[in-house]
Amino acid sequence: MGDLGLHPPRHRVAPRAVAWWTLRGVLGGGIPLIAALVVFVSVESWRPWLGPVLVALVVLTAAHAAVVPSWRYRVHRWEATDDAVYALSGWFVREWRVAPLSRVQTVDATRGPLQRLLGLATVTVTTASASGPVQLVALPDAEATEVAARLTATVGRTAGDAT
């Protein structure tokens, strides 16, 4: 019923991406959790209502870390041809993005601290549209470098004013 008639991009992201997403989710949920815990210990009068909030936070963070990364891994895919970059991302909401190389302005490879730890990188391809960037999230480090170099070379060869 909901099939879009769009083929999924060819490559999956690095399997280590699951670890990255899990770490990120635990850290993202863990910091407010610790803050809430400190308040819970120090302010006695808030305990009656802060207790349930704490429990809810723990459950949500744990559920998110358990479910979302592997869900994401099943969804995320990417492909870069000589004509276009193409990425599928998301988990609950899926998003397909395509940018033809004739309209590409810049190609970046970025590595955050967590990504460096795991040997991952994200390639971002931007077009002249503010809402158009295509992100190839969590590729293996070496592959990201190679893809970025190949895309930059192809973009350099492709004529067009990018608008």
Partner: peptide, 11 residues
């Protein structure tokens, strides 16, 4: 003038 597409689909 279209320079790219995004398609979004929630569950």
């Amino acid at each position: 003038a279209v320079i790219g597409w995004r398609v979004k689909q929630s569950f």
